[in-house]
């Protein structure tokens, strides 16, 4: 890290602590922190937090209904974390269970020994039989269907979105709004995007259910460095209410300035004529 980069990082960290940063500054700091993680630092924000507690009247407790909401949110949050953990860490046999399974008491009687010997022989015979049968089955399966593989439990888009929010440091968040104020579509929701992870999610409320035989929805990412908006993937709104869709950018996104969703012909289009824009989400400069 050269002196100029060091100075820039100090300035950004100070401004972040005192005033907050613009999106461009957030991106700049995220890039510096990614390149120089050893200089990423909370100490100025902690200092600002200590100053921010000066003269703070904390005598009024949090309202009971709000406390209940926060507790309910926490329950949901920890349940989601638990679900994620069970996906990433499959349950292991505990040492105790392992011992229980594999420990046996030695017996002294000859009859008991003979019993074990016969049992062992029977097991060997059974194992050989199972092995040969399985081999035959495998040969048969190979001719008919592919070998099934273990299917990992898939996270829901909501869980994946939460995971991204928890892990990415450079999250950009923005809300959907009307493209043409004269013809409001009243689509609500938000966009979260991480440039470092090249991953993001959109949430919609009020996006009409589409007739899949006639049209599909398509996401677009408007990048400052691209002449045409980047295709973010197609999706259908098959039910009313909130829907969450992962953004599937077909090109590397460098500097997103706006997201859009359009209605297109089934399968989507490589370049949109932007005639049916359902909503746009601008990133504040």
């Amino acid at each position: 890290m050269n002196e100029q980069e060091k100075e820039k990082m100090r300035e950004l960290l100070s401004d972040k602590a005192v005033f907050g940063l613009t999106d461009a500054e957030i991106a700049e700091l995220a890039e510096l922190e990614e390149n120089f993680p050893e200089f990423a630092d909370d100490s100025l924000e902690l200092t600002a937090a200590a100053i921010g507690m000066m003269n703070l009247d904390t005598s009024e407790p949090m309202p009971a209904h709000l406390q209940a909401k926060v507790a309910a949110d926490a329950e949901q949050y920890f349940a989601a974390r638990k679900a994620e953990a069970s996906v990433s860490e499959p349950p292991k046999e505990t040492a105790e269970e392992f011992q229980k399974t594999f420990t046996f008491e030695p017996k002294s009687s000859i009859w008991q020994w003979l019993g074990w010997a016969v049992g062992a022989l029977a097991c060997v015979a059974l194992a050989i039989n199972i092995y040969t049968t399985q081999q035959k089955l495998k040969e048969l399966e190979a001719k008919t269907v592919p070998t099934p593989t273990a299917t990992p439990v898939k996270l829901t888009p909501a869980q994946e979105r939460e995971q991204l929010l928890a892990s990415a440091k450079d999250i950009v968040e923005t809300n959907w709004g009307d493209f043409d104020k004269a013809k409001p579509k009243n689509v609500q929701g938000d966009v979260v995007w991480s440039n470092a992870a090249q991953k993001g999610f959109v949430r919609f409320r009020g996006l009409p259910v589409n007739d899949q035989s006639k049209e599909t929805y398509q996401l677009w990412i408007f990048d400052e460095n691209q002449k045409q908006p980047i295709d973010g993937g197609v999706f259908d709104a098959s039910e009313a209410g909130e829907i969450i869709v992962p953004i599937n950018a077909k090109l590397k996104v460098q500097k997103p300035i706006m997201f859009g969703v359009t209605a297109e012909k089934p399968g989507g289009v490589p370049v949109s004529d932007l005639k049916n824009v359902m909503a746009v989400a601008k990133i504040a400069a």
Partner: peptide, 19 residues
């Protein structure tokens, strides 16, 4: 003023930076 001031308060509080 903000940058210099916050650095000075950090020093006073002993909140050392990683740097």
């Amino acid at each position: 003023h903000a940058r210099r001031g916050i650095l000075q308060v950090r020093e006073f509080l002993g909140m050392s930076s990683l740097e």
